[in-house]
Write a protein that binds this DNA or RNA. Sequence first.
DNA 1: CAGCGTTGCTGACATTTGTCATGGGGAGGA
DNA 2: TCCTCCCCATGACAAATGTCAGCAACGCTG
Lengths: 202, 202
Amino acid sequence: MSIRLLLADDQALVRGALSALLNLEPDLEVVAEVGAGDEVVEAARRTQPDVALLDVEMPGMDGIAAAAALRAELPGVRVLIVTTFGRPGFLRRALQAGASGFVVKDTPAAALADAVRRVHAGLRVVDPVLAADSLVAGESPLTARETDVLRAAKDGAAVATIAQRLFLSEGTVRNHLSAAIGKTGAANRAEAVLIATDNGWL
Amino acid sequence: MSIRLLLADDQALVRGALSALLNLEPDLEVVAEVGAGDEVVEAARRTQPDVALLDVEMPGMDGIAAAAALRAELPGVRVLIVTTFGRPGFLRRALQAGASGFVVKDTPAAALADAVRRVHAGLRVVDPVLAADSLVAGESPLTARETDVLRAAKDGAAVATIAQRLFLSEGTVRNHLSAAIGKTGAANRAEAVLIATDNGWL
DNA sequence: CAGCGTTGCTGACATTTGTCATGGGGAGGA
DNA sequence: TCCTCCCCATGACAAATGTCAGCAACGCTG
């Protein structure tokens, strides 16, 4: 009896290629492919996979949210997150969302099938380097509001724009930004956005 | 006689998966895989591929520079650029570097083999939507120096830092930035960086 | 050669940004 | 209940940023 797989990645080419790669293994079988996070649960319900491989970066619902939704709806399906970016915060949030494994796309292709088998067997699969980074980086030091404001500043918007968008006074926005800059150890807004993004805090 | 392929992508998993996908086609054969732009020419010399599939985002030499180097060294090898980001500027620069095709990773997996065959047959393969975007966006309006300064501003550095890094006076940096902001239609530095990046001007 | 655009610099100016002190209100823990 | 933390706000201040005008040098082109 082969392991049934669900594949979710927004890039069709990568999705198809991963499917080809995994189908080469005699004990693995890709039974569903989707290109958006909000299609995951529906497809899983229909095809009853054993393991779901989810990319983090996806339109609509991201892979971590999809993992949480999947665990809530179909707890029998194990989740393996496969992502381009090894952001510490991603790993943390993925595990909190109930993922059993976390693999970055830098890992050799041969290791993926093994990771799938381990996850299916009930083991955890986590990149050790990334796990260490995640411990060092720790949880996000930003409060909910600071995160909101910083996220709104991502596209280079001015304070006035952010204030309008979040229905805050300009002074409050500046205070939140100042706090975020301080906590991230940045010298200004742009750098704070970079640091927070790198750590997966946004 | 099958078509010999060289694969260059920095993400090992994607590289391996694409290899698996293409090797499924009876008339295609992956003869080399590399993970960095500066390994492309050497590998091509050794394995004599017919077509090289190059990712744009790679450490060391990027895919477009690798394409140019490859065309200069081994003009018989046709180049197909495969990239995540459909930035208008990338397409333009890829074609100028001598690439025969340009495919974004959003395209369905089934289309990739076809693209390879077309490129091998001497045809051009270009995403029509992207081609249109490229025409609309046009060439970069930024001068060489403005591009330098904007690139240096990408990581959120202050004017003083940029000035030091480029051996310019602070006033000059501010002038270049102001010009770049004006030309991109942005309201500030951060937005200008975003717009320029989106268009592939950096 | 004259004109043009790019580069580099200066100085001046208005605006924006970042910081700090201060205060009120609410939620949650000791 | 008191204390702490977060949220929201205000006002004031210093620093950074963006804009503008003007000047000089260089290389390219008609």
